[in-house]
Computed example of a mutant assay.
Amino acid sequence: MKGITLTLRALHHGERALEKDLLAAAARHRTEHEVHHVALDLARWSREHTARLAALAPHYDAELSGPSARPLSGVADALRAKAAEALGHRPEPGLLLLHDLRALHLAAAGNSLHWEMLAQAARAGRDDRLLDTASACHPETLRQVRWTNTMVKVLSPQILTSL
């Protein structure tokens, strides 16, 4: 049970961090509309995963907090929007975007591995509660991984060859 608890904590931390990073990337790349809007949607999924993990934790002698309050205030949003618009006219934002997508991809892949570990433990222990949660959340995490990978494939040729 201790291994499950540790993995729940690691995944909870990973989902919270991914949500925060997705929101920051959405704000930083506001002028890239697909990135901005999809990153916001994907952040919502990580937020929901965090809530589900927090609800599940007491069954494994863990105490995990629910989703945090939205970290971006209206003033911060406005400042980030202006910065994104100003940066949108220089070539360097493309490299920043690729860097952000790479980091998001690695974070989502790490979360995916934790979901897989929990699902395998749930199967081995015949733990339907844990398996149901992993089965519901892991496909969304895999979609986060696929989206970041696709965006890197689509954007990197143009960005890297235009510098």
Rank of each mutant, 00 (worst) to 15 (best):
residue 18 L to R: 09
residue 100 D to A: 15
residue 136 A to V: 12
residue 28 R to Y: 08
residue 55 A to V: 01
residue 147 W to N: 04
residue 60 Y to G: 02
residue 45 W to L: 11
residue 69 A to H: 00
residue 14 G to T: 05
residue 104 L to G: 14
residue 67 P to C: 02
residue 10 A to G: 08
residue 114 H to F: 12
residue 25 A to T: 15
residue 123 R to P: 07
residue 21 D to W: 09
residue 34 E to R: 15
residue 68 S to F: 02
residue 35 V to A: 12
residue 7 T to G: 02
residue 159 I to L: 14
residue 120 Q to I: 08
residue 144 Q to F: 06
residue 72 L to N: 04
residue 106 L to P: 05
residue 32 E to K: 11
residue 70 R to P: 00
residue 9 R to N: 09
residue 139 P to L: 14
residue 80 R to D: 10
residue 100 D to E: 09
residue 83 A to M: 14
residue 119 A to M: 15
residue 108 A to G: 07
residue 78 A to N: 11
residue 89 H to P: 01
residue 142 L to V: 12
residue 29 H to L: 08
residue 112 S to F: 12
residue 135 S to N: 15
residue 2 K to C: 01
residue 88 G to N: 11
residue 39 A to P: 05
residue 55 A to S: 10
residue 150 T to A: 12
residue 79 L to I: 02
residue 13 H to P: 00
residue 61 D to Y: 08
residue 159 I to E: 06
residue 74 G to Q: 03
residue 103 A to P: 06
residue 43 A to M: 00
residue 69 A to T: 01
residue 37 H to G: 03
residue 125 G to C: 04
residue 145 V to S: 10
residue 89 H to A: 11
residue 134 A to D: 09
residue 156 S to V: 01
residue 19 E to L: 00
residue 133 T to G: 01
residue 147 W to G: 04
residue 108 A to Y: 11
residue 21 D to Y: 11
residue 66 G to P: 04
residue 115 W to N: 03
residue 4 I to N: 01
residue 161 T to R: 14
residue 138 H to E: 15
residue 2 K to G: 03
residue 55 A to L: 11
residue 107 A to V: 08
residue 94 G to Y: 11
residue 2 K to L: 14
residue 50 T to E: 06
residue 19 E to H: 04
residue 26 A to H: 08
